[in-house]
């Protein structure tokens, strides 16, 4: 579904991605693991058009995605839940969700709103509330719900567990798995490698801008290097 080849991205003179290649197949959850600064967020931002690659290919469903503006990438069926959630603090929960469906004119918006409320009943309770007053967990739910309102075929998730209590992390990851089972393909960036490998089908390990390792979630979970570097052994 998504294929990235030899991707090079720079911040000014800093060479952040040095030839990254990866693939996400329809229906999968693929985890992208790595330390701070390895290039995980950069990879997602380049897919969603917030950054432009200097070299390399991104193809989504056989069509190139490299250099497409962020607001047009949404039309191609990709939604990005950015690092730090980036919900609109001054807008209400409902307005945030409306913005998620900004480009849609079809009549699937209402059913999708119901779907989001089924996945995150808390959001329905808070629908008229200003988003900046939500708790951290609720904000993460809103960020994911907002992305789902675009009815994406591919969902990019950047650190959904960041700053959340362990019980909330469990809950969010269960919901991510549910979203995937309902048919949305997911590319998941996580520092919490244990949680990510629990729900992912496959994974990649990114180290300073290059893919160091790839395999099924089970293989990665048993790999001695991965266990030492990312699973705290």
């Amino acid at each position: 579904m998504l294929r990235i080849d030899d991707l090079h991205v720079y911040y000014g003179e800093i060479h952040a991605l040095k030839g990254v290649g990866l693939e996400v197949c329809r229906g999968e959850i693929v985890a992208l693991l790595g330390n701070n600064g390895a290039g995980k967020t950069t990879t997602l931002k380049t897919i969603s058009g917030l950054l432009s690659p200097r070299r390399g290919h991104i193809t989504l469903e056989e069509r190139s995605l490299a250099g497409v503006a962020a607001h047009d990438v949404v039309l191609r069926g990709v939604a990005h839940v950015p690092e730090g959630r980036r919900i609109f603090n001054r807008l209400t929960v409902r307005e945030n969700l409306t913005m998620g469906a900004y480009l849609r004119t079809d009549d699937g918006i209402e059913p999708d709103l119901e779907r989001v409320f089924t996945l995150f009943p808390r959001l329905k309770e808070r629908i008229g509330q200003v988003a900046g007053t939500l708790s951290g967990g609720e904000q993460q739910m809103l960020a994911i719900g907002r992305a789902l309102m675009a009815s994406p075929r591919l969902l990019l998730l950047d650190e959904p567990s960041m700053g959340l209590a362990p019980v909330l992390v469990e809950q969010i990851f269960a919901t991510i798995r549910e979203i995937n089972q309902q048919g949305t393909t997911i590319l998941l960036v996580e520092q919490n490698a244990a949680m990510a490998l629990e729900i992912a089908h496959r994974g990649y390990v990114l180290e300073t801008g290059v893919i160091a390792l790839t395999g099924s979630a089970a293989e990665l979970g048993e790999n001695a290097d991965v266990r030492r570097a990312y699973l705290g052994e």
């Binding site: 917030l50 949404v74 990005h80 609109f88 001054r90 807008l91 913005m99 900004y102 480009l103």
Partner: peptide, 20 residues
Amino acid sequence: TAIRAVAEDQAAASLMGINV
């Protein structure tokens, strides 16, 4: 609403499909 969204966070707004 899109104007207020852009006022708050341009990058996040563009991820919604809003042409900033």
